[in-house]
Design a protein around this nucleic acid. Sequence first.
DNA 1: GGGGTTTAGTAAAGCGCTTTACTAGAGCTG
DNA 2: CAGCTCTAGTAAAGCGCTTTACTAAACCCC
Lengths: 341, 341
Amino acid sequence: MTRERATSLKDVATAAGVSVTTVSRLLNGSLELPVETKQRIETAIQKLNYEPNPHARRLSRGRSDTIGLVVPDIANPFFATLVSAVEGEADRRGLALSLYATLNRTGREIAYLRLLDRNHVDGLVFVTNHPDDGELASLINQTGKVIVVDEDVPGASVPKLFCDNELGGYLAGKHLAEHGHRRVLYIGGPQEMISTRRRFHGLQKAMTERATGKVELFRYEGDYTAEFGRAAAKRFLDEGMPATAIFASSDEIAIGLIEVLRAQGVSIPEGVSVVGFDDVGPLHLFSPPLTAIRQPVRAIGQRALALLLETNWQQPEATHAEELLPVEIVVRSSVAPPSKQ
Amino acid sequence: MTRERATSLKDVATAAGVSVTTVSRLLNGSLELPVETKQRIETAIQKLNYEPNPHARRLSRGRSDTIGLVVPDIANPFFATLVSAVEGEADRRGLALSLYATLNRTGREIAYLRLLDRNHVDGLVFVTNHPDDGELASLINQTGKVIVVDEDVPGASVPKLFCDNELGGYLAGKHLAEHGHRRVLYIGGPQEMISTRRRFHGLQKAMTERATGKVELFRYEGDYTAEFGRAAAKRFLDEGMPATAIFASSDEIAIGLIEVLRAQGVSIPEGVSVVGFDDVGPLHLFSPPLTAIRQPVRAIGQRALALLLETNWQQPEATHAEELLPVEIVVRSSVAPPSKQ
DNA sequence: GGGGTTTAGTAAAGCGCTTTACTAGAGCTG
DNA sequence: CAGCTCTAGTAAAGCGCTTTACTAAACCCC
């Protein structure tokens, strides 16, 4: 329990009767040694239970072998799964992970971006989910070694990785159109956000292409939260349920929405059909099991790390790519043909 | 984008025409300076956009201002919420958080514990959820500065923080007894684990005290996973549904259980009543909304960090206490009186 | 047996900061 | 004006490691 001074390279060197350099170079593989000496050193390491001091090593090497992950909120299952995937991939590659939650406060995002400057971390996987006034983008550009994930930061010239939001919207729209819906409510995130715009665009495209009769699309936009889902549901009811189907663009929105609809006695899918987005929670156990667009969350996390490590940061054009990962629709029981009325 | 050498203390010192010591001491508040000099230094810092190099600082100070959090699986909503709470509390206190997922591999847990040795982190919040053969406990004891959370590591002489598992079991049992159940199945985690034993004990106590008629308790024990929940459900059905109520000791178990029961056409609560444990997922939207024991997950995370920082680590180990945080029962619609049959 | 090559290492600088111990000079006091 | 105190700093060691450049000794070859 008492923490005596930890054993250092020097202790090992002394114990093995060699110089610090020798041990260090052996450990780093930049020195061949006769087995006998090697063994002596290794024995000393064992006996003294030596482990290199990471701070000294980082200072000396000028890198931290740590990557940073900035997310809006870790408790949100979508981000939690993303964190899990990034952590797993980082560990697999021998990197540590520093985790930062912004809770959508701009000050935080900026502070965390600055970490990179001081090689606190070697790179950053950055997830935001609110609009940027340009400050973030310019900071990202002058910082480098950032991958923007899940939601765009317009103007940032770094690699970006999103799910195929438009495809998601399209799949939802297609599914609804095929069930005969033509009046659909879209409940999206903040309207400046590219994710919500693309999802709506996909929905619109599918409905236009596939629905029979005059297509009517309604659009409520707020946050990707259960709270906004509840508010949207109330508004929908207040407005006399103008649509026969709802496309909720996050699990949280869907949760809030369903809470209120259920409380108000609107049954799903008889009263109104619902399609969700994300599909990371246990939507299959909901009442009814919820049809949703599934994001490849783990794949996004893994790919983000790969991008961070494999991008050639010297090469300007390499840093402008936007990569989309496909989504799929998971059909359950929350969509039915609109009731005649 | 190009990363020129970051500005160091020396650059600031030169720019301000003072020595490195002066700047350092000013920054650390161990030196009073005339406003004029102070301003000169501060201007230089601004202009050069200086930020201290964390690795140098840590090396020099001998501490990292970082705490480590080891959890079995980040994607699990329970742990995700815990991570979120610990991160928030760490940030509030100006500490960084390093996150490690063990995925229940013993080697990993041990490797992460060793991080502490090298003052990689200043302290560790440690969550495991599988039995220990004593190796972990002894490593924890020789490491110090560890808080064991959520699940016990028997033999570890460090502060421990759990939810009141026995109370949880008791509340579940009481609720079931009050609805007239006397034959109850307990689906728990690994039987060596203290959490599952205490929950069962609480259940038993409540049933014995409160149920009318002969109490029959069944006990399946496996992992806290949806998979085990499914297996347990199958076994329950295979054995001809010997109980009228089930107490599932994690959200995941409950999810797996409900999946199978529902697929087999057993309705809840008519066919069988169910009480869950944890209540971090959207159980209120399940079909039916699930009655569950709620863990104070965020409070656990916050308290864990407080314990880590406020414990007097000099004091003899034996005095480290075990602390319990209360749980509550959230009554929804998955419990009904047993059907006459 | 002189020169080259290989083997088996090592010395020392440097990473960027903190911290302890110290000092030059100004101002004050009796 | 000698001696003291106070102000405004500074020099230098040290944290523990990496890395570059170097060397002493042994070996080999003609």
